[in-house]
Amino acid sequence: MSRVRCPRCLRPQSHCLCADIPHCTHSHPVIVLQHPSEQQHAKGTAHLACLALSNAQIMVGETAEDFAELKQQVELNPDQFFLIYPSETSQAIEHRATSKNAASVVADSFPTILLLDGTWRKAKKLWHLNPWLQDLEQFHFDRAPHGQYKIRKTSIDKGLSTIEAIGYALNQLEMFDPTPLVGILRALANQQLSAMPAAIKKRY
């Protein structure tokens, strides 16, 4: 029998994180394109990030057909979207942030930030299966802090969890304080560690 889950944070009721999820306001809308394999992952952070953020959502899928409505919006107004993804043509988001003066930030209509959520292999699959994303401006992180989510391994040097990537992107674009999002991540990590046998916990 499966464990009863909290309908909001989707964690088991005994490990509900709702009390650790603050309300964070921000200007840039956020859309997370999530690979289906990530949807039920116990260590996933995208859903928790979207619960905390005032203007964020998840779209689950793999192909262009799965994201048809968003694809249409992007093709109609490509300047209103950009993608966080370290492609061969991506630019450092830090450079974009410092090149915008205060007056232009106020005048902007705040483009939507798109992120790909999944393991690095699954994120690359989303990238290749959705060539419409490749027409957007793409950005990577040059000076992001070291990732704090040690309990989930990544093959990417200095890789960040989705919740950390969202927080850092918003911080660079609009001086958003990512501390509350990092707090959620720590609460999740502490839960996962507390449930691990001592022998396994030593690996982290």
Rank of each mutant, 00 (worst) to 15 (best):
L136N: 07
E137H: 06
Q138R: 10
Q138L: 03
Q138I: 08
Q138H: 10
F139H: 00
F139N: 02
F139P: 03
F139V: 03
F141I: 00
F141Y: 08
F141T: 06
F141S: 03
F141G: 00
F141N: 05
D142C: 05
D142P: 00
R143D: 09
R143K: 12
R143E: 10
R143L: 06
A144T: 01
A144S: 03
A144V: 05
P145A: 09
H146A: 12
H146E: 14
H146G: 06
H146Y: 05
G147K: 01
G147C: 01
G147Q: 00
Q148F: 08
Q148K: 13
Q148L: 14
Q148I: 11
Q148Y: 07
Y149M: 09
Y149L: 06
Y149C: 01
Y149G: 06
Y149N: 00
Y149P: 01
Y149D: 00
K150V: 14
K150L: 11
I151S: 00
I151K: 06
I151P: 01
R152C: 00
R152T: 01
R152K: 12
K153D: 05
K153R: 04
K153Q: 06
K153Y: 11
T154G: 09
T154C: 03
T154N: 05
T154V: 07
T154R: 06
S155M: 11
S155V: 13
S155A: 13
S155C: 14
S155I: 13
I156Y: 08
I156S: 02
I156F: 10
I156W: 10
D157M: 09
D157G: 07
D157R: 11
D157P: 03
D157V: 13
K158S: 07
K158H: 11
G159V: 05
G159A: 12
G159C: 04
G159K: 06
G159D: 08
G159S: 01
G159Q: 06
L160C: 07
L160I: 05
L160S: 00
L160D: 02
L160A: 06
L160H: 04
S161V: 03
S161Q: 09
S161W: 07
S161E: 09
S161C: 08
T162W: 00
T162H: 03
T162V: 12
I163N: 06
I163M: 09
I163W: 01
I163Y: 03
I163L: 09
E164I: 00
E164H: 07
A165L: 08
A165H: 06
I166A: 04
I166T: 05
I166C: 09
G167R: 10
G167Y: 03
G167N: 10
Y168L: 12
A169M: 10
A169Y: 04
A169G: 14
A169L: 12
A169W: 11
L170C: 11
L170K: 05
L170F: 08
L170A: 09
N171K: 15
N171R: 13
N171S: 13
N171I: 09
N171H: 15
Q172S: 13
Q172P: 12
L173V: 07
L173P: 11
L173H: 12
E174H: 15
E174I: 14
E174N: 11
E174A: 14
M175H: 15
M175F: 15
M175N: 15
M175V: 13
F176T: 08
F176N: 10
F176L: 14
F176Q: 05
D177C: 13
